[in-house]
Amino acid sequence: MKLASLLLWTAAAVTALPEKHEHKPAKCTKPEKRRSWHNITDAERKAYTSAARCLLTSPQKLNRLPGAKTRWDELVSLHQIHALQIHTTGQFLPYHRYYLKTLEVLLRECGFMGVMPYWDETRDAGNFSASVIFDPVTGFGSGGDAIGGCVPNGPFYNLTVNIGPGFESKPRCVNRKITDMFSAQTGKTYVAAALNHTDYAGALDGIYSGPHLLGHMALAMMDGNSITSSGDPLFFMHHGFVDKMWADWQAKDRKKRFKDISGLNAQDPAVGFSEFPGGMEEESAMWGHPSAVILAVTPDPQFGDNGPNITLNHIMSSLGIIPNATVADVMDTTGGYLCYEYV
């Protein structure tokens, strides 16, 4: 059964080749300064959440992403479609950096002219629930009372996401459940341990299995579902933190680490998500299998690599929201395709 599922997924994915690499390099002469939510003004906070709310209430545009009814759904659909390629693989960090870029472009559609913020979780480690990021007026609203509990206030109260859970497409409220105990492991000591590696493989595992995973456990966004947790706009604040960790690690040896990439470009069927027991087939009991319509638009995970291992030539796709980009394009946040730095 496991082999049959893998062959079905691979065959369908190969038929959905992403478009060719469309990016033309530019120069980054004045990098934008991405600041923590703690350090931006209330006006900047409201401008950001207003634009995100706009995306949650704007109709979809592509007419190709299964289940999408809003522009936000299209963004969440990308995470669903790519889920088995961008978790427990070498794609994890570069794709999520590209994913943040995709959100930035969408926010511009809704009039956001500021710089993308992130959440410095080290400042709230062990006490997430008291963070300013959950303010109902100038933040993302607080957490629900239980898994599946809709956010009770804030800009995303009473809004619907139509992608998920898992590989389904069912309308759900924006929801999260905050558990302070897990958030302790996003602290400075844990971040330092995650980054205490000399190669990408080590840093990737340290980040993924450490502060990234424990941050997700502390927030349980969208029922804690790994496939569609980006339904909660807070997801991108968390992944800004994740991206900053990678950028900080790269900055310690730029010459080497801007070219250091390794790992598979799709999950090993015997492993699946490393944080869950069993392989892909066993884990499918939690969220099902990708449907035929999802498989029909799933890019070939080997596109640009010509093999099962990720390379700098790997092509990442947003399926039409923004142009494709290679892993090489996103290795340096000030390299031209991207033009920002964390402060």
Rank of each mutant, 00 (worst) to 15 (best):
K2G: 15
A4S: 12
W9D: 10
T10G: 05
A11M: 04
A12E: 06
T15D: 09
A16S: 14
L17H: 07
K20I: 10
H21C: 08
E22D: 08
P25Y: 04
K27L: 09
C28I: 02
T29C: 02
K33R: 13
K33L: 15
H38G: 01
I40V: 11
D42T: 10
A43S: 13
E44V: 14
R45M: 07
A47M: 09
Y48E: 02
A52V: 13
C54E: 07
L55M: 08
L56V: 06
S58Q: 04
Q60R: 15
Q60L: 10
P66N: 06
G67Q: 03
G67K: 09
G67M: 01
T70I: 02
W72F: 13
L75S: 05
V76C: 09
V76N: 06
Q85N: 13
I86W: 05
Q91Y: 10
P94Q: 04
H96R: 08
K101T: 13
E109I: 08
G114R: 07
M116F: 15
M116T: 10
P117L: 10
E121S: 13
N127Q: 06
F128S: 06
V132T: 10
I133H: 00
P136D: 03
G144W: 14
D145F: 09
P152Q: 12
G154Q: 05
G154W: 04
G154Y: 04
P155W: 01
P155S: 01
N158M: 07
T160I: 15
V161L: 04
N162T: 07
P165L: 12
P165C: 08
G166D: 09
G166V: 04
E168K: 14
E168W: 06
R172T: 11
V174M: 11
R176W: 03
K177N: 12
I178Y: 08
K188W: 05
T198L: 12
G202Q: 03
D205K: 14
G206P: 01
Y208K: 13
S209M: 15
G210T: 08
M217A: 06
D223S: 11
S229Q: 07
G231W: 04
L234R: 11
M237G: 07
K244G: 00
W249C: 00
W249E: 00
K256F: 04
R257D: 00
K259T: 00
V271N: 04
G272Q: 08
G272K: 01
G272H: 02
E275N: 15
E275D: 13
F276A: 13
G279T: 06
E282I: 12
E282Q: 15
E283Q: 15
S284Q: 03
M286A: 07
G288I: 01
H289R: 06
P290E: 13
P290S: 12
P290H: 08
S291G: 14
V297H: 06
D300K: 06
P301G: 02
F303L: 02
D305E: 12
L312S: 03
L312I: 00
H314W: 01
I315V: 15
M316I: 04
G320I: 14
A325Y: 09
T326F: 04
A328S: 07
D332C: 00
D332S: 01
G335E: 00
Y340T: 06
E341N: 01
Y342D: 00
